[in-house]
């Protein structure tokens, strides 16, 4: 066991915790944007299914509108990748 109260932080320890926090940040970036995308797609998806049920021609356009909030999660992914590499 290391006694954190008295032990001196070595350079290796600091570097290791930085890598760890970066990984947590990357995880949060993808996870939270994923939730945001989900919430945004909920309404659009419901409307898209409704419109497609009435009019089959709407399918392509409806699908396009539904995936537009995907950009949010892609931003999150980009940020995560920037953090990690």
């Amino acid at each position: 066991m290391v006694d954190f109260g008295t032990a001196e932080l070595t350079l290796e320890m600091i570097q290791a915790s930085q890598v760890g926090l970066k990984a947590v940040g990357a995880g949060l970036a993808v996870g939270l944007t994923g939730i945001g995308t989900g919430v945004a797609e909920m309404g659009i998806g419901a409307a898209a299914v409704g419109a497609t049920a009435e009019n089959k021609d709407m399918f392509g356009l409806a699908l396009l509108f539904t995936v537009i909030p995907e950009t949010i999660v892609i931003f999150g992914l980009v940020v995560a990748l920037l953090l990690l590499f």
Binding site: A46, A47, V49, G50
Partner: peptide, 11 residues
């Protein structure tokens, strides 16, 4: 609940 409203109202 709100998704159901959106679905029906769009239709």
């Amino acid at each position: 609940g709100s998704a159901q409203y959106i679905y029906v109202c769009t239709r």
